[in-house]
Amino acid sequence: MLSNSAKPTLLRKILSTPTGAIGMALLTTVILLALFASVLFPEGPFEMVGAPFRPPFGEYLFGTDMLGRDIAAGIAYGARISLLVGAVATLVIVLLGTVVGGLAGYYGGWIDTAAMRVTEFFQTIPTFIGAIVIVAVLGPTLPNIIGAIAVVSWAPLARLVRAEVRSVKGREFVEACLSLGMGDMRILVVQILPNVLSTIVVAGSLMVATAILFEAGLSFLGLGDPNIMTWGFMIGAGRSAIRTAWWMVTIPGIAVLLTVLAINLIGDALNEALNPRAKR
């Protein structure tokens, strides 16, 4: 989507806005935490290091869970998986959604019909239940979970892109391009895509959060990968003790929230940088 030469200026543009700077700072922190998890907590996230239900900000920074596991260690290791799940799933969703939706919206005709039949097919299955079925059939491992999230989530984005492309296509400047004899691909990528990019970026940044929450939902139903510590796993596990130990759900919840917030702030900054017309 972004050419290499555009990157430095883009980054600078993002950092120049307060929202973008805050977002970048937050996301960098999460990424660093993920990278240095094994240095900070060499004993791993599953080790029962202390007494259960230690409140936070005492002996352990974020307290311990019902089995005496260090929640701070879980947050650090969970950052790895949550970022991975969010990033990979979103990447697949955005790629599939943009390609299918873009082609369908631009060309119309049988391509549109076929693409819309395929998206309708994926949409008709209730999203969450669809993912549960896929994970139940294939088994709860991380690649299966990411795959399931992507498979059930790409169709709405494709339809969104299609609708936008159709709307943009109807505008005067596209017709002007056509009359100038510009190629389809060129019009689609150079003229139309930038106009729908803001929608894709906003929807895409929300997808990251959805993917992370989705994983949490599956973990909560016992369909997470039990050998991997994720924030979803922690939220799911802490949920039953929500009245006894609020921090078990709240701290990983805040981790999800901050990550999502960071991605959204960056998304907003990106939106403004890419789409100057949104500025007034």
């Binding site: 029962m48 019902m66 709860p140 039990p226 050998n227």
Partner: peptide, 27 residues
């Protein structure tokens, strides 16, 4: 979930004598 939690404890306890346990949750 209590049963899954027990699996996690068993994994830790057996790990102490060198038995590495992989957990497999299924419906």
């Amino acid at each position: 979930e209590d049963w899954r939690r027990m699996g996690e404890v068993i994994k830790q306890q057996l790990g102490k004598v060198g038995i590495e346990v992989e957990l497999r949750n299924r419906d």
